[in-house]
Write a protein that binds this DNA or RNA. Structure first.
Length: 257
DNA sequence: AAAACCTCCAACCGCCAAGCG
DNA sequence: TCGCTTGGCGGTTGGAGGTTT
């Protein structure tokens, strides 16, 4: 027995027709995004909520960029993938006009080292292939404590084995944001290299409002998007990266660029 | 010309987390 | 606390169109 929609019709699958697109678009323009379970009913579509949502997000939404990925976009995908792994929605969020599906498809067909060799004509991609690694750094929120603050002080690299790097941001009161890195690695040599690498990733930019933010691989990034945990005084923030071998691999890859 | 093969991407599927009663 | 619903995500697939043989 085939699934039935809220309208009592059999759920349609497969490619969307121009008429369905038009109905969906008009419905969302009228009622807005969200409440996806109501969309098929409101639009008079024989589609499931998921199908409607996907069609809108990946195809019908305004400002969606089509066509080939530019060199800067590919570079950004590589950098973000190195940092975030297969978190396509996060990566796509940093690339204006591109959807998670676009990024995922592009990665799987052009950049994924496990799939196949890159296309011959992708000369703009080729020089970046060496950046691909199988290791992933996943930022995770870290509850702040005085002990952790101390370990990032004058002697940040002295720490028991455990392999993590604490990255602290702070506002100096003049709208300047500082980023400091406390490497808690057993490899003290990581300090300079990791600073260099992370500086490269988190370039400072001045926003329109005069405040400073981060340019993350060429695209502005907000603190909220990094799931940063804010300290009680509202000034310093922390998040954690696993380091040691993982970071070393990343850094050596980065230095080969 | 047509069959076989390849590439790309839209769409589907299953899973997970959050929200709510 | 539990179960249900919903939104959202990543992995995978299927088919259309292009290329090669």
């Amino acid at each position: 027995m085939k699934p039935i929609t809220a309208t009592g019709l059999e759920v349609r699958k497969g490619s969307w027709t121009a008429k369905e697109d038009m109905l969906l678009k008009k419905c969302i323009e009228k009622y807005g995004e969200g409440k996806w379970h109501l969309i098929p009913l409101r639009a008079g579509l024989s589609r499931c909520r998921k199908s409607c949502r996907l069609r809108w997000l990946n195809y019908l939404r305004p400002n969606i960029k089509r066509g080939n990925f530019g060199e800067d976009e590919v570079d950004l995908i590589l950098r973000l993938h190195k940092l975030l792994g297969n978190r396509w929605s996060l990566i796509a969020g940093r690339i204006p006009g591109r959807t998670a599906n676009d990024v995922k498809n592009y990665w799987n067909t052009n950049l994924n080292p496990r799939s196949k060799q890159p296309k011959k004509e992708s000369s703009d991609v080729k020089p970046l292939q060496h950046m691909i690694t199988t290791t992933v750094i996943k930022p995770k929120p870290l509850a702040f404590s005085n002990t952790q603050n101390e370990c990032m002080g004058d002697n940040p690299h002295i720490m028991a084995n455990g392999g993590s790097s604490l990255i602290r941001t702070s506002n100096d009161g003049d709208n300047n944001m500082n980023i400091s890195i406390g490497v808690t690695s057993s490899l003290s040599i990581l300090d300079d290299k990791s600073n260099e690498y992370l500086d490269d990733l988190f370039d400072d930019i001045q926003k329109e409002d005069g405040k400073f933010g981060w340019l993350f691989g060429g695209s502005p990034i907000s603190e909220q998007e990094l799931n940063v945990v804010e300290q009680e005084d509202g000034q310093n923030q922390l998040f954690e990266f696993p380091m040691d071998d993982v970071a070393w691999k990343l850094i050596t890859d980065s230095n080969r660029m």
